[in-house]
Each structure stands twice: as C-alpha cells, then as structure tokens.
Design a protein around this nucleic acid. Sequence first.
DNA 1: CGGTCCTTTGACACAGGTCAAGTAATGTGG
DNA 2: CCACATTACTTGACCTGTGTCAAAGGACCG
Lengths: 245, 245
Amino acid sequence: MTAMTRARPLVIDSHRDASVCLTCGARAFSVCNVIDDADLDRLSAASMTVSVQPGHTFIQEGDPAEHFFNVTAGTAKLYKLLPDGRRQITGFLFPGDFLGLTHNALYAYSAEAMTATRLCRFPRKKLEALLDELPKLEQRLLGMASHELAAAQDQMVLLGRKSARERVVSFLLMLSGGAVRRGQPDNPVAVPMTRNDIADFLGLTVETVSRTMTQLKTQHLIELMDEKQVRLSRIEALREIAGGF
Amino acid sequence: MTAMTRARPLVIDSHRDASVCLTCGARAFSVCNVIDDADLDRLSAASMTVSVQPGHTFIQEGDPAEHFFNVTAGTAKLYKLLPDGRRQITGFLFPGDFLGLTHNALYAYSAEAMTATRLCRFPRKKLEALLDELPKLEQRLLGMASHELAAAQDQMVLLGRKSARERVVSFLLMLSGGAVRRGQPDNPVAVPMTRNDIADFLGLTVETVSRTMTQLKTQHLIELMDEKQVRLSRIEALREIAGGF
DNA sequence: CGGTCCTTTGACACAGGTCAAGTAATGTGG
DNA sequence: CCACATTACTTGACCTGTGTCAAAGGACCG
C-alpha cells in the first residue's frame, strides 16, 4: 500500500449499481445513501483511503479481519489456496464492490490488486458497533451478502456441472453483465485479468482457457480485439451455450 | 406438505449451534434468543409449522420468495438445475438451518426434503418489516449469511480444485464436523443422503463417488457400518487428504 | 414376489490436464 | 534505441482421471 489519506467514509450501497466513498474522489454510480450526514461524519473519522499497486496482496487469508473495504477504483481478485499451492479465485472486485464481511474474526480469503486500486478502508470494530444504531446500514450489508451468496451458488453450478466451453462463455457473459451494471462498455468487454486468473476462477488450466477462447474465436462467436478486450459477436448463441446466465 | 399448524415463531440463532422454533417441539441446541417475548408474539402470529414428506420439493427455484424457513427436524437439500437437467446441490440443511434469504424477490434454488422434515415457516414480508425494529434479529441474519458465504467459498475450492478423492474425504469430514456442532454422533457419522445426492453436491458422478468410497474403505481410512453410516477410522490421515477442512 | 430404486463394479472413451516449445508483448539497463 | 530478460499467451502431442455405458446384486415395498 503506497498511500493512506484520511477520507470521508464508505457509503454502503446496493451491490453493483454501487456508490463508492463520497470523498475518495471516485465517482458514485448511483448515489443512494443509506445514512445521513451526521452519521457519515462519525464513520468518516475512522475511514481511510488506501492505494494499492498491482500485484500487491493487501489481505491475507487467516489474518485477523480488522478492516472492511470498499473498492473505489481499480480491480482486485479474491482467492483461497490449498496447502500445495493450488489456487481457487472466488471472485473479482470492481469499483463499488466491498470485502471484509466475515462471520468470525478472520479473513476467509486473500485479496490482491490486479490493477492500481483505491480502497476506502474502515475498522470492522467500529462498523459493527454502529450496526445497532444504523439498521439501514445493516440492511444494506445484508442485501449485499445475500447477493454475494446467490453469485456463489451460481459459481458452484459452473464449477460442479459445466464444461470448459460453458464456463468460459458464462464468464464472458458475467463480465459483460457486470460492465453494464457499472455503466461501462459491455461489448466489446474489458477483460482485465490474465488467462491464469481466469483459469483459477473457472477451475480450469491456462491452456484450456486459451484453447477454448481460440475455439470460440474460430467459430465466430467472439472476436479478440486484443488480449484484454473481447467482442461478443453472437450474444444469443453465447447465452445458449452458457446455459442460463 | 402434509401438515400446517400455528406455531410460535422462529428464533433466529447463530448458525449451526442453532436453536429452532421454541414451540415446534424441536429441542433447542442452544437457547440464545435474540428477541424478547413481546416481539416473539408479534412474530408468532404469522409463523407456522409445516411438515414435509421425503422427496417433496417444497421450494422451487424462480418462484416468488414468499417465505423464510427454519428447519426444526429432518434433512433437506438445496439445488439448482441447468436447462438440460444437470443438477448441482448447493447445500444440505439440518435442524437449525434456515433458508429463504434472497436479495431479489425470487428463490435462487429449489429445496427438497430428504427425510421427513419439519419447518417453521414465516412470511418474508413481515420479517423484513420487522428488521428495522429488531436490529438484533438482523445482525443474526447477517451473521448467518456471512457464515453461508464462507461455506460457499470453501465449496468453490472443492469444486474447482480438488480431486475426487479429496472431495469425498472433505465431504465426510464436513458431515462429521456438522454433527459435532449439532451435538450428534460424529464418528461413525450419519450420511443421510444418497450417493447420487453426494455426487451432485461434489460435482462428480455416482459411480465415482461409489468407487472412491470403496477405495477409501480398502485402504482402511473409513469403514462402512452400513450404507448410511460411516466410521472415519483415521481422522488425521483423512484431514491430510482433504487438504484443509 | 415382482418392481423399483440404490449401490457397486467393470470396460471403455474422452475432456481436460500435463509437459514442452514457440511467439508475442513489455520492461530494463546500457 | 537496442540487447536481453521476463512474463503472458498460444499451440501441439500425449496422458490420465473421471465420465459413460452396461450389468448385476441388494434393500425395500406394495
């Protein structure tokens, strides 16, 4: 982490069509505050803006979960490791996403910035203390958690029952759908992660991801503008392949 | 659903070391009420006990999520289907578990009773209306959702990165761990689900599950008391194989 | 006691993993 | 601005873990 500056607080908002810290300099995609100014000030006293360089792991699985974060800029990945080093990426974070919810006092996963990332950081202790007094805030958290849960269940279907082809197509559609919600170009869609990250997210190997992409390209279902930019040429056909996303 | 009787309400408690409906006749594993008697009465007016026969699907994915449920007896499975019928079981429910949290107004999965099951049913609308007034209740819900989320992430690692052998062993250890938390015998551990259900939970086929079990048996790592009862003979060796559960 | 469902086991096939090599893109220091 | 290293991506050849298909034995039930 390269910079830490005092900032006004995180504003919890509905997932995805998310607002971000009011004063971190990040634009808010939808401003739908759940707490009023007075409470904002109480939160703001303890919040901080944190800048993270690409490749930096700013959360370690198993560490005490001292902070709650809101991504205000950049992209990050969440992952878990097996003892022998196998990795499963459990999610990608974009501006507006949060992390740090945990039922015990430890982080359940590691988090690493993929691009230069700005985070609004807030002590979990304080947040929890405020939950009693700010039911709206808690409802928002509950809503976000429910949303995450639904996404996790979809991912279980993908990992447990879909073929490599179906996984890759589902992934591209997910990315595109997320871009829409964030008000970013959805077709061609930006693919900021490496093939390796995609593989670890989809439960495949780099080689299989790469092969599948070229196969899709050959069949004119997608078009690789460049490495990190994919046009979905035949969305309906792709949706058919994905099997329900 | 074969029976519906007026019951006193669901009591939301910490996941797993869970209490259940106070008056459904189910014993409470830990009585740690989060709401007082007056509020209980308000909840109770709308709650109901529902009995469900084995094999009955009492929640359909995509249906309007009108109720929130608390399992008070029996076992159930949650699953999602792909259009062509492939199935992924996303979780098993035991007494004390809940279901019905959803961020939109639809159920995200189907639920089917595996054994005779009793549920405490509560209208979601009313529950949501009460959240403002009962922050403790909401905190409990948030805690349960966070716990579910952590479990879902573990399951992603299993589905994305573990071998068949590792999956089966992880599953048996999970079952055993859950039994401990519910105060039930954990070794030998009850395995109430069919091989097919296990397969659909682990992202495998019945045949692979069956073969893997006999392989573990041959290697004296487990012992099949009968079809639905497994002794974990060498727990430490099994933990080693599972890779962190 | 015949039917249904669950489980196990065997023989074989194939999707995706592994290993290896080559190419392209990016950065670094001289 | 150019050697050179490094990292990401692609492609090919081959291998293997798990799926598929088939069959048979057992448990349960009306």
